[in-house]
C-alpha cells in the first residue's frame, strides 16, 4: 500500500495524517467511517510509531478489552482494522513545510520533495519525529553531512574511504557488510564483544575480521579530530587504553530519539513542545489542522493510547464538517448500521 509516485504535481486529498503511530492509524478508521480517505506520512520505514520502534515486544495492559497486547501486536491489529479504508502510506518521509493556500486548503512538502494539497491535516506525531541519536562528542556537528553520516543516501560518499562504524545492532552490522567491499578500510567498533544484530550478520562480520578484510575494535569514542568538516581521526577508549583510529567517514548507530523537528515552524501555538487543542474538536490554533495523541495538550490530558483513540473519534466528526460543510451526518453504530458495515466490508 505504499504510494506510487507520479511526477504530475501534488497529491490532492481530503486528509493528510502526519504520523502513523497507533493514534494516526485509528484516525484512518474514524475518518473512514465518514468516507474520508487519508494519506499518512511517517519518518519511520514502517507504521506503528513508538509501539513498533521502541517497544514492539513489550506488553501493553491498558488497551480497552485487550488484557494484554504487545506493541507490534497492537499495530498489526490496527492495520487489519483499517484495511477496508485503504489508507496510503508515505513512509521514510518527514513533513518539512506547511502553508495555507488562498482557497483555504493546505500545501505540505516532505523532505523527499513530495507535495500534498489537502483540506484537513491531522497531526498525530507523538513525541515528534524519530531522529538518529547524535553522540555527545565535542564538535561533531561540524562533521555531519560531510564526514559523519547517520544513514547512507549515496554509496559514492563512502567509496575508497577509511570508514568507522560504531554500534552493535543490525544497522551497524548491515552497513559494515554493505560498505566493506567499497571501503579503503573499514573498522567496526562496539562497546562490548556481543552484538544484538542478526546472528548470520554477526557471523559474516567475524569472517571478514578473521580474513583481515576489516577490523573490529571493542571500545568507545571519546573525541573527533579533523578540519573544515573533514574527519581525520577518531579517539577511542578501549580496555587496553586510549587509541587513535584513522577514519575519514564515521557512522554512529546509537538508536533513535524523538525531536519535534520542523513542526515547530508551522506557525501553530505550542506549549512546551506540545500543541494545545480544544476538547470538542481537537483542533489546533489553525482551523483545519487537528492534533491527536501524545503531541497535543489540554486540561487533564493523559498520554495514553486510549485517550488518543477517543480524540481521533471526535476529531473525525469535526474534520468531516471542514471537508463536507454541507453534509448532514447521522450518528450511527457499527453494530447495527448496514451502511457502516458496508464500508467495513462486513458480510
Amino acid at each position: 500500500m505504499t504510494a506510487t509516485e507520479t511526477d504530475t504535481g501534488p497529491i490532492e486529498t481530503d486528509c493528510v495524517i502526519v504520523g502513523a503511530g497507533p493514534c494516526g492509524l485509528f484516525a484512518v478508521f474514524e475518518l473512514g467511517l465518514l468516507d474520508i480517505r487519508a494519506h499518512l506520512i511517517d519518518i519511520l520505514d514502517r507504521p506503528g510509531g513508538q509501539c513498533a520502534e521502541l517497544y514492539p515486544e513489550k506488553p501493553i495492559y491498558d488497551i480497552p478489552a485487550l488484557p494484554v497486547v504487545s506493541g507490534q501486536g497492537l499495530v498489526d491489529a490496527l492495520m487489519e482494522q483499517i484495511k477496508p479504508f485503504e489508507p496510503t502510506f508515505h513512509l521514510g518521509e518527514r513533513v518539512d513545510a506547511l502553508e495555507r493556500l488562498p482557497d483555504g486548503r493546505f500545501r505540505l512538502r516532505t523532505d523527499r520533495d513530495k507535495e500534498f494539497v489537502t483540506k484537513v491535516i491531522v497531526i498525530a506525531a507523538g513525541g515528534g519525529s524519530f531522529t538518529p541519536k547524535r553522540p555527545p562528542l565535542p564538535g561533531i556537528e561540524a562533521f555531519e553531512g560531510q564526514s559523519v553520516f547517520y544513514s547512507v543516501r549515496r554509496m559514492s560518499d563512502f567509496e575508497g574511504r577509511d570508514i568507522l562504524i560504531v554500534g552493535g545492532g543490525d544497522s551497524a552490522l548491515d552497513w559494515t557488510l554493505n560498505l566493506q567491499p567499497i571501503a579503503r578500510s573499514l573498522t567496526l567498533m562496539h562497546r562490548r564483544d556481543e552484538f544484538r544484530g542478526a546472528p548470520h550478520s554477526v557471523e559474516k562480520m567475524r569472517q571478514l575480521v578473521a580474513s583481515g578484510a576489516m577490523k573490529l575494535v571493542i571500545g568507545q569514542m571519546t573525541g573527533l579530530e579533523g578540519e573544515n568538516g573533514e574527519l581525520a581521526k577518531v579517539h577511542v577508549k578501549t580496555k587496553a587504553g586510549d587509541e587513535t583510529l584513522v577514519a575519514d567517514r564515521l557512522m554512529p548507530f546509537f538508536g533513535l530519539t524523538m525531536k519535534l523537528g520542523p513542526l515547530a515552524d508551522w506557525g501553530l501555538n505550542l506549549e512546551e513542545n506540545l500543541i494545545p487543542v480544544d476538547t470538542e474538536k481537537f483542533e489546533t490554533s489553525e482551523p483545519g489542522i487537528f492534533a491527536i495523541g501524545d503531541i497535543n495538550t489540554y486540561p487533564g490530558k493523559l498520554k495514553l493510547i486510549l485517550s488518543g483513540f477517543h480524540e481521533a473519534a471526535l476529531m473525525a466528526q469535526a474534520a468531516n464538517r471542514v471537508i463536507y460543510p454541507d453534509r448532514k451526518v447521522v450518528f450511527q453504530y457499527t453494530t447495527s448500521s448496514s451502511s457502516l458495515q458496508k464500508k467495513l466490508g462486513v458480510r
Binding site: 545492532g169 562497546r191 556481543e194 544484538r196 568507545q220 538508536g255
Partner: peptide, 8 residues
C-alpha cells in the same frame, strides 16, 4: 545490557 548499547 542490550539497551546500554544506546548509552554513551
Amino acid at each position: 545490557a542490550d539497551m546500554l548499547d544506546f548509552a554513551f
